[in-house]
Design a binder for these strands. Sequence first.
DNA 1: TCTTAAACGAGACGGTACGTCCGGTCTTTAA
DNA 2: TTAAAGACCGGACGTACCGTCTCGTTTAAGA
Lengths: 197, 197, 197, 197
Amino acid sequence: MEQQRRAGPGRPRSQAVRAAILRAALAELEERGYAALTVEGIAARAGAGKQTIYRWWPSKADVVLDALLDTAAERVPVPDEGSLAADLDAFLAATFRQEGQRAVLTGLMAQSVLDPAFAQAFGERFLAGRRAALRGLLERARARGEVDPGADLDLLVDVVYGTLWYRMLVGHAPLDAETGRRLAALVADAARPRHPG
Amino acid sequence: MEQQRRAGPGRPRSQAVRAAILRAALAELEERGYAALTVEGIAARAGAGKQTIYRWWPSKADVVLDALLDTAAERVPVPDEGSLAADLDAFLAATFRQEGQRAVLTGLMAQSVLDPAFAQAFGERFLAGRRAALRGLLERARARGEVDPGADLDLLVDVVYGTLWYRMLVGHAPLDAETGRRLAALVADAARPRHPG
Amino acid sequence: MEQQRRAGPGRPRSQAVRAAILRAALAELEERGYAALTVEGIAARAGAGKQTIYRWWPSKADVVLDALLDTAAERVPVPDEGSLAADLDAFLAATFRQEGQRAVLTGLMAQSVLDPAFAQAFGERFLAGRRAALRGLLERARARGEVDPGADLDLLVDVVYGTLWYRMLVGHAPLDAETGRRLAALVADAARPRHPG
Amino acid sequence: MEQQRRAGPGRPRSQAVRAAILRAALAELEERGYAALTVEGIAARAGAGKQTIYRWWPSKADVVLDALLDTAAERVPVPDEGSLAADLDAFLAATFRQEGQRAVLTGLMAQSVLDPAFAQAFGERFLAGRRAALRGLLERARARGEVDPGADLDLLVDVVYGTLWYRMLVGHAPLDAETGRRLAALVADAARPRHPG
DNA sequence: TCTTAAACGAGACGGTACGTCCGGTCTTTAA
DNA sequence: TTAAAGACCGGACGTACCGTCTCGTTTAAGA
């Protein structure tokens, strides 16, 4: 998951400590919110020294990101149901389903605004994968002729994730199954092939 | 813009100081970034006491929000050009044009994630107005028959602002005139009336 | 008691306000101690503006000093009972009797250490008078032949007030009638005439 | 001198920092006076963090007290010259000699009036020792028959220190060798045995 | 088995900003 | 002109975390 020390002399990194720290970070986050998260708090809760955290992670956000990536091992599978609308629908449904993580995700997005170094890590280690999955789904649909060849796939991806993130960040409207269905339909419709003439 | 003290005894609030603080906040933000913004820094730059800031604003984010609302007095006008696509295009173009404010806006969004009290202020005093303007535009188009009567206008609004915010926050893709045109076309198309049968 | 504005045009100084401020100062002092005394607190309690206090007194200590001098109008009378020991005894007894003022007096002494300007006021307006009274008592005794002509009267005065203040400040030993009697005897004895040869 | 942390895990307290803080406190006190002494100023001058001061001392006065006790390691020796008057004379001379410390001592006394917690520390860690030394001197004189068996030794101690402190605090009269000699004589005379009959 | 070296808990340390309090000054309206 | 009210600048307070730095202790790999 991160830097792998070459096996040499010296005490090897403790996986138990790593796990304890990730667990503590998520627990603190859940209990007190992202804003109240501190390295000291995580260390205290994990029974670890602050130095141990600084040794392996550049910032508290990177700890949380690792925790997120660890638990998201049960990844959102990319559906393949034969039609774009159905695939999108399934994809969004699966995405919404793992939404106990709103606090984690919005916290990381906030952090990534405030800290360019973390923004890069967040983009590369989390966002890029999700975007790639959705783009792959659209590309397959394009190959099947369900998407206009001239369509701006990147824009379509951003429309989907943009809407998701916007609702998640602002919290003014629900992110439920019905919303997913409508959004899927909207995107599938916008992407449909245009028959010239 | 905010709390209006009744004229009673006592020295009245100094508008000059208020303006100096807002100016200082924007200057600090531009020079050093949102993450490095501090109440102390704003006060020092404005030649004001910290207490004066705390007396009138609950947090530094509220200072920045006031600064934003003051300068955004030259509001994005809601265009009315006769067609939905043209209106959307003009609206998005106007929205993008005032993009010296990316740092301000993303900073405030980040803060609004971290501070629920500010989230409410941000939602009510900034986001709601923008959403209402766009919704009005869509409602007029619906009255003209350019939007399907059953369309989920709130979702359409979120698709537009979601895409904008997502690109603004993540910064992976441009927010230029061409992007605006494509997004306008996409939304206008998705909203078009469906003729049953 | 302090500066007297010439009667001219304009609203005259309110004696009621002056009294309210002195009363408030003593009340605050008694309730919360000298250390917690603040100009703001006195003003608030007196229903006065801070400016009103600063207009008439250079510091909070001067307010307290005025309050002390006002209440000490029932001054310690200088006894004249015919013998030095008896006079001293009566003088000390009277001095001790007005010891509800320990907090006031020690507070002012502390302040006078910390603030040279107040030290002068305290010395001239309070300490000097007390010292003069005691010195007068000793001088009368010397005239009666009860005090050695070569005695250092200033030192004798300091021995008396020094012992008093020391016990008052440190609070390690009582300041009661018995102590007064012993101190009176000690000083009278030390001052007694020496018969050369 | 103060709390001795058990040698456990963790970085041990830095004696160099402790010394720098005490030195800085005395330097600030000398340059700017006790009233202008601030924790912030001491920390800045010592190149230390404020937290480091608050970690080890409850108030700035305790810092100064530690500084005083450290430098006063070369304690006033208790003289033993064979006669009470000579002993007292030597004791007072030695006491006066270390009077670069008037600012320190009066500042601490003022603080001890304003802060009961510090008053206890001051009493136990400084005043008590001095009083005990002088009392010991008087007790030895009593054993030699130079002091009346019924004399109130505590009062005699207070007469000596009271006079000293009073002159030091009020500053109206000198504290020189001649004064010391007269005070020594006065006390020795007052303490002399009374032959009944 | 002994040495070496890194990991680790603990906690001191220099900093920086926090949000609060109060000191003194000022600027208003009312008396 | 005094007075109440209260805004204002300034400066220090005591606290919370940051990220770094010693300590003593633990745990493997290599000699």
